[in-house]
Nucleic acid binder design. Structure first.
Lengths: 301, 301
DNA sequence: GGAATAGTGTCTTTAAGACAGTATCGA
DNA sequence: TCGATACTGTCTTAAAGACACTATTCC
């Protein structure tokens, strides 16, 4: 027996008569938040380089937000998945294979883009900058790594009423580049409302300078996810070279999580995830450090 | 100075001339995985009810997958966000306010739907079934709660080569209903490949019985997320009534995480999240239990 | 030698796990 | 009284944090 619907059509007849264009459709894009760690060289021969977290942005050459900076991304093509679109985007910016790529969140505010309805799925990618070969034909003026600084502008305020608790906080994300004379920033109002048993978090963009669309909000959410995942996965190893010192690795954690750790405790915590090698890193005016590599079989325990 | 693009247009001129229809666009839907805990009454007056995890499915009345069961969902309308579409869908299935609703993942496989390209953003919702008033006009034949059973069909196999580790496992998700004489199941092949420093997880649908689209895969991923979030957030409280016993709460954890816990340890772990009340639960042939309620200020510590 | 970082041993404090024992109900 | 579940106290083990100390390099 063939299943027929209420109009008496079987599946083949239904599909032939189906009008795919009868609903209004949004455009869908894939945006890639490409993060890396970078070193700021120290002038003191004894001191280690300072490590900072950076994100890749591109300069928009067309409206809307012409000349502002944006997270790299583009429309999802009819013959590719969203992930493939993100990978394609990533390929244009890096030359590395096996880049870590993870879906983060899908943004669907109605007026995100003044051109039309655009729904955007964001991905997070992590790369080790020391492996990045600069691409031929790269126009430094249009693609650049920006150091990320996140600071609190207005300290958290908690308002408790009979049935509700509301916590508001204003933060500012500043994106800076050592060579470009440029101010990029986003000021965000974070409102956490306790409704019933759950906290509902809403992020509003109060002000954005030289940053396109709702990308300040997207960067903020990506930073939160990066923080979270760092604590219970091994993704930090995507941000260091194949051979690294434990201090380097510790710096990745400290910069992203924003808190100091004692060397003894840190080493104890990650000892099963790394393998000691006989290589050494020297050249600085202090005791040279052993180089370690990632223990890829760590999961199987 | 007005910013002009390479065609010499300012933003207003650009937007007026922009052809929003020039790219092929997918349809976007919001799917809601509505979970709840249910009790299976015991025939022994002394024993507590058995608790099970259930998910809400609807029966499809049209092609494709006519007469199969599906996760409730629908197209995102032009004047609503994706979340609003999910809430609208949820409103049709429950009457509760403040339902916990969280975005999970966006699925963009090209052939997910035989009608056309459909990109689907899934949300997870948690409700306490004892609060659910059955909706007027609800057709029990078309909407039903299904008990979830996840089992391993083929035990994990790990293949190690020089540079790669591949782990495969076949699982089966069975969805059952006490009254309906119905088999709903999905058999899934899970392949985890260690590429570089990261594990890439791919879920393939081997077989689906009476289940529409790629919904077996979506249910599986939702279960994983539910498990994860249970361990480091307070979402479990959405699955119990306002007043609950600690054993009830413990059951929520045990059923979803699939492992036993010692009462002493469990109570110690959650003691700051709950508030003891003077209420008691009796009626069973054993010592009555104290009723507790959620400590909504637990976060602020 | 001195500044700076690398690395380790041990003590203390907390948290997690195990286990035994008491309490209280309904038939 | 018995079967079943509700709870609590304490001992053990493991993890996290604090701190002191030694090691090694380049200028």
């Amino acid at each position: 027996m063939v299943d027929r619907n209420e109009q008496g059509l079987n599946e083949k007849e239904f599909l032939q008569s189906y009008d795919a264009g009868k609903y209004e459709k949004p455009s869908v894009t894939a945006d890639v938040l490409l993060f890396t760690m970078d070193s700021i060289q120290s002038d003191n021969y004894k001191k280690n380089d300072k490590k900072v977290l950076k994100v890749l942005l591109i300069k928009r050459r067309n409206h809307p937000y012409i000349n502002s900076w944006a997270i790299p991304g583009g429309f999802v093509d009819g013959n590719e998945t969203i992930r493939e679109a993100a990978l394609r985007e990533l390929k244009e910016e890096t030359n590395i294979d096996h880049v870590y790529l993870e879906q983060l969140y899908t943004y669907g505010q109605i007026d995100r883009d003044p051109r039309m309805r655009v729904i955007s799925t964001s991905y997070m990618a992590l790369v080790d900058k020391t492996n990045l070969k600069p691409k031929a034909g790269d126009d430094a003026k249009d693609v650049a790594w920006f150091e990320i600084l996140k600071e609190t502008i207005i300290e958290p305020v908690i308002i408790e009423t009979e049935n509700e608790v509301i916590r508001t906080e204003t933060i500012k994300i500043t994106l800076s580049h050592e060579d470009l004379d440029l101010d990029i920033s986003a000021t965000l109002l974070i409102t956490e409302t306790l409704i019933g048993k759950n906290i509902h978090r809403v992020v509003d963009v109060l002000e954005q300078v030289n940053l396109a669309f709702d990308h300040g909000k997207i960067i903020d959410m990506a930073l939160d996810r990066l923080k979270n995942k760092l604590e219970y996965t091994q993704i930090a190893f995507n941000l260091v070279p194949e051979y690294f010192t434990l201090t380097e690795l510790q710096n990745v954690y400290q910069v992203i999580l924003g808190k100091e750790e004692k060397p003894a405790g840190f080493r104890r915590k990650i000892k099963d995830m790394v393998i000691e090698t006989s290589k050494m890193q020297s050249s600085k005016g202090h005791r040279p450090a052993k180089l370690y590599t990632y223990n890829k079989f760590w999961h199987l325990t």
